[in-house]
Nucleic acid binder design. Structure first.
Length: 424
RNA sequence: GGAGAGUUGGCAGAGCGGUCGAUUGCGGCAGUCUUGAAAACUGUUGAGGUGUUAAAGCCUCCUGGGGUUCGAAUCCCUAACUCUCCGCCA
């Protein structure tokens, strides 16, 4: 949620920056601005009356005590009269506040000034390309879904029977590879200073609101109707919400957490070749990294996180590229996002395996997540997160890029985790 | 699932419907003492809004929502959550 005080002072800047996300917010911003002025006018008026009422109530109490009944009655009538006015002003104020919030919560975050203009994924800026580990495959190379069947490590049909499309069953070495990757990612995050947490994978509405999934984006999440809970689309939601309604000390920043969780996405309307195999699933595993940062350092930290993720890709011996997302391709809550994509040798496509974002104070404002410098007033913190990493597409790329005549080669760093060096 | 109890400031824990934003303890911060630290003592210590050069002042907040009243942390209704006992269970 954009800070109301910022809109108050910087109308034109807000409109200009939302235009980078291809949104004409002129009307919304003007409306907020006008409603806010009116709201504050009413608030002032109301508060003066409330002050008078408080004073009267106090006097009445004293008059009753000293037995001056008639005078007390007199004041009581006056107070009753004021009460009516207060009530209507209060209603008006609440209504205005609701109107302001209704607009405010559906406005996306302001993109950082360095976000490139653009409408679609085509307009993203290639920030970095590392083809060092580009595989040399011949035309007989198999896509990962065929390799999965050939080596009997992932069964899509079986998952279909149990839950539906997009819920694969990993078997044997396939399952072990999943576990190996999760442990490998968690261990690395731990070494990089992230504290491991295991959060709930069901969240309530407040949590969904805090990180920006609710309202409006509930269609992307599975909903447990009976208990009104949602399955998490990413660990970002429960982990960031650990810090909802908290004031942390400035010297404790940055706070770094990592979590492995399964993630659930409805992906309604997705179909076709691009969602085959592991490319797009309803349930998948991911290790997430989250940081709560001081506003002065959040962009350095974003760079650190990006470098950390590309470091993992190098360790896994995967060719990758880093995209700086354009305004049109960025998510609702993000101020700046880098996407990491790995090369999938047989599909001959780039697959997104991580997305690292700085949300600045957008989530913090919804979460009421603040830090305090000494005895100063609390200030909204910045939140950041990134996948480190999402498993399925990593697996897809590993299978395809490392296919050899006698099996699939496991990268050296993973062998201690898998216990085998080849899937046969 | 059944029965009961509760939800107050960072934590613990008081609070006859009328100077209660709230007693007290702990913790935190500052000071005295000390070579330094500890102990002891003293002071200070919630959030949001409004306002101001800065303050003062004023308003709101005692889980959320609604109600009664001139006046509510205190009474009533309601929701959520927590705890205890019983049942069930990985």
């Amino acid at each position: 949620m954009i800070q109301l005080a910022y809109i108050r002072e910087n109308k034109q800047d807000v409109i200009a920056r939302l235009a980078v996300k291809n949104m004409d917010a002129t009307h919304d911003i003007e409306e907020i601005y006008t409603l806010d002025i009116e709201k504050r006018r009413i608030q002032t008026e109301l508060e003066m009356l409330l002050a008078e009422q408080n004073a009267l109530a106090k006097q009445i109490g004293e008059l009753f005590k000293s037995g001056k009944k008639a005078e007390a009655e007199d004041l009581r009538n006056r107070s009753t009269a004021i009460k009516e006015t207060c009530k209507s002003l209060e209603e008006k104020q609440t209504e205005l506040e609701e109107q302001i919030k209704a607009i405010l919560i559906r406005l996306p975050n302001l993109p950082s000034p360095q976000v490139p203009a653009g409408k679609t994924a085509e307009d993203n800026e290639v920030f970095l390309l590392d083809e060092h580990f580009m595989p040399k495959l011949d035309d007989a190379a198999l896509p990962h879904w065929e390799l999965a069947t050939k080596y009997d490590i992932i069964d899509f049909e079986l998952g279909n029977k149990i839950a539906g499309a997009g819920f694969p069953v990993y078997k044997g070495m396939g399952a072990k590879l999943q576990r190996a990757l999760i442990n490998f990612f968690l261990d690395n995050a731990g070494r990089a200073g992230y504290t491991e947490v295991q959060p709930p994978i069901l969240i309530n509405e407040d949590s969904g609101f805090g990180t920006g999934q609710l309202p409006d984006k509930e269609g992307q999440m599975y909903h447990v109707g009976l208990d009104n809970l949602y399955l998490i689309p990413t660990a970002e939601v429960p982990v960031t919400n650990i810090f909802r309604d908290t004031i942390v000390k400035a010297e404790d920043l940055p706070i770094k957490c990592t979590a492995y969780t399964p993630c659930f996405r409805r992906e309604a309307g997705s179909y076709g070749a691009h969602v085959r195999g592991l490319n797009r699933l309803h349930q998948f595993d991911k290790v997430e990294i989250v940081q709560i940062a001081h506003p002065d350092h959040s962009y350095e930290i974003l760079n650190d996180m990006r470098t950390y993720v590309t470091g993992l890709l190098k360790l896994l011996e995967l060719p990758y590229r880093v995209l700086k997302l354009c305004g049109g391709d960025m998510s609702f809550a993000s101020a700046l996002t880098y996407d990491m994509e790995v090369w999938s040798g047989a599909q001959k496509r780039w697959l997104e395996v991580s997305s690292v974002s700085n949300f600045e104070s957008f989530q913090a404002n919804r979460l009421k997540l603040r830090y305090r410098e000494g005895n100063a007033k609390p200030v909204l913190a910045h939140t950041l997160n990134g996948s480190a990493l999402a498993l399925p597409r990593i697996v897809a790329a590993l299978l395809e890029n490392n296919q050899e005549k006698d099996g699939i080669r496991i990268p050296a760093v993973l062998i201690p985790y898998t216990g085998f060096d080849k899937i046969k």
